[in-house]
Amino acid sequence: MNDYIASLIQTTCISLIGVVSIFPLTGMTGLFSFGQAAYMAVGAYVSGILAVKLGMPFWLCLLLGVLSCGLLAIIIGYPTLKLRKDYFSLMSLCLGEAVTAVLNKFGTITGGAAGLSNIPKKSTMPLIIISAVVTVALVALFKNSRFGRMSLAIKADELAAKSFGINVFAHKMKVYIFTSMIAGYAGVLYAFYLTYLDPNLFGWTRSSEWVIFLFFGGVNSLTGSVLSTIILTVLPEILRFASSARIVMYTVLILLVINFKPNGLLGEKELRIPVRKQFRTRTRG
């Protein structure tokens, strides 16, 4: 296979994991986070540093990278998820900035602005593709469980959700930790795919790119998010857009969607697997 196509497939898959990682948080629970790329950064850096500086094996780096994201999510989520939704969004934006600042400051460990290099190349094409597919499946199962339903209820009406026994804060925490760990996993894959990291890879533009993809596909549709990620990552590559032009294209698309099709490309529609049908017919009986 052509190298260019191979790298396109792999970056698209990693993006896909990123976008799918914010689906439960932003799409379903209605918490707009503009700093989830910070978790990707943490996952990438923790695993990368462990591999480069301590020579740990890949699987251990992966595990610790993802776990450290979960830990950070607990620390950050505990105070911020108690705040109003728009304050949470703001704090998530600041979190992204803060993480970049810390990465730049502690250059002796992270490589600072010059970057961290010599990470072994462990993310192979099959691993990345399988990861993307599995992540989508996990999130789909999340959506179809009681957790997905609670998320949607919280998004629709927090006060009513509380009146029916849902511990809103605890649920938001669970979702936040879950999604942050997936973002961290995307980060680990990314680190071991690029073999090189620098803090600018994880700025707020990447976080907002994820939100934009999600919004474009339809905030309530996982299928829509997957499709829009693929379209919006591959299209600019084929058209060979400069990065600013690409962002202009994204933003114009979002404005069109918001103005004329506020539910996104697919709204609430999902690609259904036949298993669901039995469930549906049983409902009628």
Partner: peptide, 11 residues
């Protein structure tokens, strides 16, 4: 939704 708080299964 009213049944969902019951921990019938974990995340």
């Amino acid at each position: 939704v009213s049944c969902d708080y019951k921990p019938r299964y974990s995340l």
